[in-house]
Structures are given as structure tokens and as C-alpha cells.
Design a protein around this nucleic acid. Structure first.
Lengths: 170, 170
DNA sequence: GAGTTTATGTCAGCGTTGTTGACATTCCAA
DNA sequence: TTGGAATGTCAACAACGCTGACATAAACTC
């Protein structure tokens, strides 16, 4: 059942930060913010025949060029059938190149083409504009807290994927 | 290596927290965290024939009992056809009650039934468990920053909806 | 009172993106 | 050589967005 009492007692100003009310506000903030987070790329994607799944694939291929399909599958957390449909259109449209592996020829290594990089730049710049404004509004300390809470909210395997990407300079 | 130090130690002098690398990390953190954010309710919903859209409707009807369809439409940011399909099933399944307005008889006021409240409690408790753990891990100061950045990331109309709900004690 | 607008519901159709299941191919490894 | 891993593909389906069109009732306006 619902518990409206503070679940933890910390320092004076933060007595209430674990009440159900505070948690509910966090939940609603996530909901509304995620909409804003995806709104700008969504507008660009809608002009072409693409959706968020294409954006995600493009993002992570750009982030880790040469990644295999299986690796991408793990990061995106979807089925191979679902990813394959998206990759198929991106490859057919000349945004992604799929190269057979040299060491293991079963593997396909994925790269963005010139056009793919151009779209990636458009999409991520649109998203960064909003993030930059939000970061600037909130200030550096808030940004640090923001990241800390988000990391704590991830599933363990996603946190591993995230930190692995984070600590890799592309 | 990438620089993961919090930028606030340099105060307003440093724009390190606004580098593209920092922004990219924030973008990826949002992506992975949102998956975790929805994972627990998703598991419950999958057992019934429901999805995220049902959860959202249930959440906001619980949050603002008696809200009208139009109001809910604005909060959820979907078309009436899309919302209607979801509401239809929830009403047919006896989770939501739709009452004709007394002042304006065109309006339908939405309420959760006993069963609706029970499901809402299950879903939101599952979500709160994760949020509570994340908040506890990150600490009160991080939570404040988290909320600050999320609010700054919202579209203006969503921020209005959010603060309106936030400042209404149910 | 007539006409317009508003709130809602509903039907039909479509697109993206997720799912499961089945099956083929290729190729590494034991 | 056989088993399993990585990948691709086909089929079917579901959730949930969308647009467009149309119906109804109520409220508002002139």
C-alpha cells in the first residue's frame, strides 16, 4: 500500500525527498521530459519515412562504428526481427553500410555512410540544442544530480552498456 | 578518456558540462533510464492485455479524478481517437467510470473504479520502488538536480501541465 | 430560433515498432 | 562431422500512434 511518510531521514532540507508525493512528481517529470527529449528529432524523422527506432540505430552505430548486429541488439533491447527491419531500410536507403566481418565472417559490422552521418548530425544537433538549453537553465550541479539519478534508475545491464559507451572516447 | 568529472567544481567559469560529449552522455542516460523507468509497470501490463497507454491514462485519471476527456487529451498529447480506444477498453473492463457532466452535459468526467484504483496502486508501486531506490542511491541533492533538468527539458505546455499537477495536493 | 462551435464518440484505414515462431544459411569450434 | 552461434528472412500479430470523415448532443452566439 501507499506510504506517505518519509522513508528515509536525511539532512534537514531533505526530510521529504522520498515521500510518495516526491516520487510521483519524479515519475511525472520523467514522462513529460521524455516527450520533450524526443520531440525535436521526431519532427525531423517524420519528414522522411523514419521513426525513433531509426534514430536509435543511427545514434549507436555512429557512437560505436563497426559494431555488430548482435551488439546493437543488446544495446537497443529489441528483437533481431525488429532491428532487422529498421536496418534493412537504412541500408537500402544508403545511410548504413553493413560489412561482413574479416575475423568472423558471420558477423556484420555496421557503419554510417556519408549520408548517414549527415542525418545523424542533424538529429543529434536538434536533440543537443534542447539538452544544452536545459543544462544551462539548471546549472552544473543539477546536471550532475540528473545524471546520477538516471544512472541509478537503469537496469544493471543497461548501466553496463551505458558506462561502457560513456568511458569510450569515440 | 572522456572527462566524467562534475563540472560544478569550477563554478560558472567552466562550460565543461556543456560540451557535446557531456550532452551525448546525458542523451544516452535518458534513453537507458527511460527503459528502466517503464520496465516494471510494463511487466505487469503485459500480463493483462494492456500497454503503456493504459498506464498513462490510469495514472492521470487517478491523479486528477473527474478530469474530462479533453483535459486528459491535452496532458497525454495524443489524438482523441487514440485515447478513445484506450479509454473504451478501460471502461468496458470496469476500471474507469465515465460520468456525464452536470454543468456541461457534453463533457465526460473520468474516475477510477475500485478495480481501477487497485491496478493503479500496483503499477505505481512497482514504479515507485525503482524510483525510491534510485533516489536513495543518488541522494537528495542529486534528486533536486534531476528534477530541475527534467523540468527544463519539457516543452512549455508540458511544463505548465506538470507544475499545475505538481502544485495540486491530491 | 437559427447557425456555429465545442466536446465527445466512432468507423475506417494506415504506419511504426514491438512481439513470437519457424526456417535457412553460413561458419566457427569441439 | 556435428553442434551451435550469428545472421537473415518470412509470416502473423498487437499496441498505439496518426489522419480523415462523420454523428450527436449540448452550449454558445447572433
Amino acid at each position: 500500500m501507499s506510504d506517505t511518510r518519509p522513508a528515509q531521514v536525511f539532512g534537514g532540507e531533505s526530510l521529504l525527498f522520498l515521500t510518495d508525493e516526491q516520487l510521483r512528481q519524479g515519475i511525472e517529470a520523467m514522462f513529460f521530459a521524455y516527450r520533450g527529449f524526443t520531440a525535436d528529432p521526431d519532427r525531423i524523422l517524420a519528414q522522411m519515412a523514419y521513426g525513433r527506432a531509426h534514430h536509435r540505430a543511427i545514434h549507436f552505430i555512429n557512437r560505436a562504428p563497426g559494431t555488430t548486429v548482435n551488439n546493437l541488439l543488446a544495446i537497443l533491447g529489441v528483437t533481431k526481427q525488429s532491428l532487422n527491419r529498421v536496418l534493412r531500410t537504412l541500408i537500402d536507403d544508403g545511410l548504413v553500410e553493413s560489412r561482413v566481418g574479416t575475423v568472423d565472417k558471420r558477423e556484420r559490422h555496421l557503419f554510417l555512410t556519408e549520408n548517414g552521418r549527415a542525418l545523424e548530425a542533424r538529429l543529434s544537433e536538434a536533440q543537443r540544442v534542447r539538452m544544452r538549453a536545459a543544462y544551462k537553465d539548471a546549472g552544473p550541479e543539477a546536471v550532475s544530480g540528473f545524471r546520477k539519478v538516471l544512472e541509478a534508475m537503469m537496469d544493471a545491464d543497461m548501466r553496463h552498456a551505458y558506462t561502457k559507451l560513456r568511458d569510450t572516447t569515440s
